[in-house]
Amino acid sequence: MAPDLQIITILIVLFTFAATLIIRRRRPLPMRPISAFEVLPDLANESIEASRPLHIGLGGASLGDENTILTLVAAEAAYYAIQPATVSDAPPIVTTSETSTLPLAVDTLRRAYASRGMIDAYRGTSARWYPAGPRALAYSGALTTLAGDDQLSSHVLVGQYGVELALVLASASRRGLTTIASSSTLTGQAVAYAMADHALIGDELYGGAAYLGKLPHLANRNLTIDLMRWFLIVILLFLMAYNLAQQYGS
């Protein structure tokens, strides 16, 4: 990397560190409503009433690489979806197509059960790995059959998906399942928007913990993201003005 870009990278990291340390509001600011986060806690009730398991798919989100943060925020959303559903007769199911994410899926499930004092109710078969297969079609194919085999009540698909998400959402729609979907890829987001009952697009999944957990430190994350967003906007406008001035100047 060129030395000037390296210095810019370091400055961005230091600025983010500083912003993160400075922003420590005790009372969270109000946040715009996002339908998926309003509906998510209700899915547990659906699962309990119907005695059918809630499914949370983490897709191709993986740990240890560039997807790590995506995987962590997907696991956060999974935790808040699972927690109220742990009392259901049909235990919630978490699936992933990445073997590195499987221990996190197990951890998330166990934490959710433990938080309700029901760790003994946790079943080892609740966290499942299905191979991604070519174009991640083995995983999405497996999810289409899971809905019938395990009589799912709803799908929460948070993580990394591509166009194959369409198969899962079409099959869920056929069965009348409620669906929440998001993806880190643009194609996955397009499919989620068109086909899911509630879609999370852009960076909405990253702010989910604040909506679901309702803890001030989680709301501070969203506030910091917004601060960085406006900082970037100012930089973009400044750079554009500078470029235009140079173009007209020459």
Partner: peptide, 21 residues
């Protein structure tokens, strides 16, 4: 937007502010 969210959440994880896992 996704890159900014990754950056902020990543920094918070690295300095131990987000410990939800």
């Amino acid at each position: 937007g996704i890159a900014l969210a990754t950056l902020v959440t990543g920094v918070r994880v690295i300095i131990g502010q987000d410990r939800t896992y």
